[in-house]
Amino acid sequence: MLYDKSFEKDNCGFGLIAHIEGEPSHKVVRTAIHGLARMQHRGAILADGKTGDGCGLLLQKPDRFFRYIAETQGWSLARNYSVGMLFLNNDPEKAAISRKIIEEEVLRETLSVVGWREVPINRDVLGEVALSSLPVIEQLFINAPA
């Protein structure tokens, strides 16, 4: 059997909040966070009171933020660059293998690796369940040719 309706899943909700003119706005972010907080009614938090189900915000970080981060690391970003968000294994050897493979693929695409940055995490706000599966979260800065 290729299809079984018992495998169908439904989402409780989806919200889209944006500035109609595309202007960055802290008010939009505050409104989105307020909306997420209202979704607790659907059991989005485990019994530990901290571990969520993965709902969150997708937003565009400003160019000047990434340029500032690069500057503090002593990196030079090209006019065309990107930042990848990666979730790596907690085993340092496995994480190193993943980084190597990713860097090889970046180079194969005629891009250049600028550097890796460990993303700051506030572990104090995470529940036991979330902490038990928390990956290493890093950003990869990549320059592209003009």
Score class of each variant (00 low, 15 high):
Ile45Phe: 13
Ile45Thr: 13
Ile45Gly: 11
Asp48Arg: 10
Lys50Cys: 05
Gly54Asn: 03
Cys55His: 15
Leu57Ile: 12
Leu57Tyr: 05
Leu58Phe: 14
Gln60Ile: 09
Lys61Tyr: 14
Pro62Asn: 06
Pro62His: 10
Phe65Gln: 12
Phe66Gly: 01
Arg67Phe: 05
Ile69Gly: 03
Ala70Val: 03
Thr72Phe: 00
Thr72Asp: 00
Gln73Asp: 11
Gly74His: 00
Leu77Ser: 09
Ser82Asp: 08
Gly84Glu: 15
Leu86Ser: 00
Phe87Met: 07
Phe87Ala: 12
Leu88Ala: 01
Asn90Tyr: 07
Pro92Met: 00
Pro92Ile: 09
Lys94Cys: 10
Lys94Pro: 02
Ala96Lys: 10
Arg99His: 02
Lys100Val: 00
Lys100Arg: 05
Ile102His: 00
Glu103Pro: 01
Glu104Tyr: 01
Glu104Gly: 10
Leu107Ile: 06
Leu107Ala: 04
Arg108Cys: 04
Glu109Phe: 08
Thr110Asp: 09
Trp116Leu: 11
Trp116Gly: 08
Glu118Ile: 14
Glu118Met: 07
Val119Lys: 02
Val119Ala: 03
Pro120Asn: 11
Ile121Trp: 00
Ile121Gln: 09
Arg123Gln: 10
Leu126Arg: 08
Leu126Val: 06
Gly127Trp: 05
Glu128Val: 09
Ala130Val: 09
Ala130Phe: 06
Ala130Tyr: 10
Ser133Gln: 14
